[in-house]
């Protein structure tokens, strides 16, 4: 069984464990986006990066795909990792500013500015939908086509799929279609809603129960926070 050191802690894991699993086993948090416990790791979003080895020969790898190898020295939160991760989030925000998942990552990791012209795209190519459809729905209706900046998610030959069961699982798992963040617009790519602690749910959802959960603004000032909690516990 491989033995490794993660953030100074020794840990022994089963063969075949990924670094992400080993790190989480120790209760250390690593942000992920394209990872899902039920799906094959892809290593697409690069958010789950950690530093392995000793500087100056250390290198950055994605923990969700990297095997927990014997003798490995892992640091999950070095300055290098933090800097790169923030820039990745900044790039993601510029790509799909309307994704609540990404906006939440931005506020959580202190990304308060976006130096890129926003694209207002709809997809960050995390491949969750493709894997969901393939591995859980056993449909294989969608996949990646083209490469580089032209890469798209589509059906074979862009034709309406005859194997798609319209189950909606791909949309359910998508970090970009799932919950739309209401905040950002052309001028403010990084939604300042959560950061300003003005819960936007007040005028968006009125008296109704908000389904944005977790919402940083809500956590701090949300009027329905107590109610939400109760409902979750029930």
């Amino acid at each position: 069984m491989p033995k490794l050191t993660i953030d100074g802690l020794d840990v022994e894991v089963e063969k075949g464990t990924t670094l992400l699993e080993a790190i989480r086993f120790l209760g250390i948090e690593v942000p992920t986006l394209c990872h899902n416990d039920g799906l094959t790791p892809l290593g697409a979003c690069r958010l789950c990066i950690v530093e392995i080895g000793k500087p100056p020969r250390s290198k950055i790898v994605t923990s969700c795909t990297y095997p927990a190898e014997d003798g490995l020295i892992v640091h999950s939160n070095t300055q290098r990792v933090i800097n790169q991760r923030k820039l990745i989030i900044e790039l993601m925000i510029a790509t799909v500013p309307s994704s609540k998942t990404i906006q939440d990552l931005a506020s959580k990791f202190g990304v308060t500015k976006c130096r890129f012209v926003p694209e207002h795209g709809e997809c960050i190519h995390c491949g969750l939908c493709v894997r969901m459809c393939n591995e859980q729905m056993m449909a294989g209706a969608i996949g990646f086509a083209e490469r580089g900046k032209d890469m798209v998610i589509t059906t074979p030959f862009d034709k309406t799929s005859d194997v798609c069961r319209l189950c909606g699982a791909c949309m359910y798992i998508c970090p970009c279609c799932e919950l739309r963040c209401q905040g950002p617009n052309a001028e403010t790519t990084v939604c300042s809603g959560c950061l300003n602690l003005e819960a936007p749910c007040l005028d968006t959802y009125d008296e109704k129960m908000c389904f944005l959960d977790p919402c940083a603004a809500c956590e701090l000032t949300g009027p329905f926070r107590a109610e939400k909690k109760k409902k979750v516990q029930a």
């Binding site: 290593g43 790039l91 491949g127 490469r147 580089g148 900046k149």
Partner: peptide, 13 residues
Amino acid sequence: AGESCGKCFTCRK
């Protein structure tokens, strides 16, 4: 950028 396979967000974007 044209030859990147596009899988890694960082390489592509």
